[in-house]
Design a protein around this nucleic acid. Sequence first.
DNA 1: CATTGTTATATAACGTGTTAAATAATAATG
DNA 2: CATTATTATTTAACACGTTATATAACAATG
Lengths: 166, 166
Amino acid sequence: MVEDIVRRWGYLTLGSRMRRIGDLLQGEVQQLLDERHIPVQTSHYTLLASLDANGPLLIGDLAETLGVSQPGITRSVAQLSKVGLVTVRQGKNDQRQRVVTLTARGQRLMDSGREDFWPKIENCLAAIMAGQSGPLLEQLDFLEDAIRAQSFSQRIAKSNREGGSG
Amino acid sequence: MVEDIVRRWGYLTLGSRMRRIGDLLQGEVQQLLDERHIPVQTSHYTLLASLDANGPLLIGDLAETLGVSQPGITRSVAQLSKVGLVTVRQGKNDQRQRVVTLTARGQRLMDSGREDFWPKIENCLAAIMAGQSGPLLEQLDFLEDAIRAQSFSQRIAKSNREGGSG
DNA sequence: CATTGTTATATAACGTGTTAAATAATAATG
DNA sequence: CATTATTATTTAACACGTTATATAACAATG
């Protein structure tokens, strides 16, 4: 049996470790989006949510808000525009600028997300991590195990059966 | 001023958050590798380290150990083989298998890493995170701020000046 | 022993991030 | 006002992960 190097080596491989857990988490969220037939990639969802929170933004502002590079935003916006969730128009005073705005459909998506989808994820992770307060590496072990043990989808279904509203 | 959505939204965006910090960390390690003229990508380094720890491994074993997909390993091994850090030979009994082995040069790289490079990273992160034991999100805030405040390279240079051996 | 299934690896196609260089609008300067 | 620098965005090339599928060797079965 071969051991999981990335995990055992602690800080030395923390970078790989965090990316790996990040991927896992994004996968879980993607599954939830797919189940709800929300036609969006997890990464794009964050972009839409930023527009929902801040109103129309420039490409550069989005890059700054989301902490990714500008070319990444250009590509995401192009895809979201193609599926009709955002529109892009030129800046009024400065014609270099591109202003990205939620369409009515995009806005509806965010409205329902705010009410239903977002709290579910928030609760799910809050429940997993409740009471955890120790060294980072231990909390990461715990989180990774928990995600692999039961999907968010299952957790949410279970909490619906038990609690109703939570 | 636009706020950092990924950070403020806590658990909802934890996936993006962890990937982002993972990328940051890998970038820091990459910088250290570059400074030492170690001609390897951070991600490849883990693969080499696994071979160092476990001895020769099959492609599939590497995938399992490192927690990445098998095609990813195939590609990494091809690149490492091209730069002469590993060799690949066919399995003796089972000709489908490919056995990946460190070359002498690869082994030397790992030997020096074990003595010099790895402890530096370990110490660097241990120093940053020393005493941190609270909710995951707070520790992530702390870690991200710390990395952005001072590079690993600077931290290590500083600790060399002060402590000598640490 | 030809056929069929399984296993180990490779290849292809894609997603999504990056940096570097190109483009085009604006601002600044002689 | 022509020229040069700066800024906002796009395009291109690459890194590296994924999943789905192809290939080729091995194992099992009639």
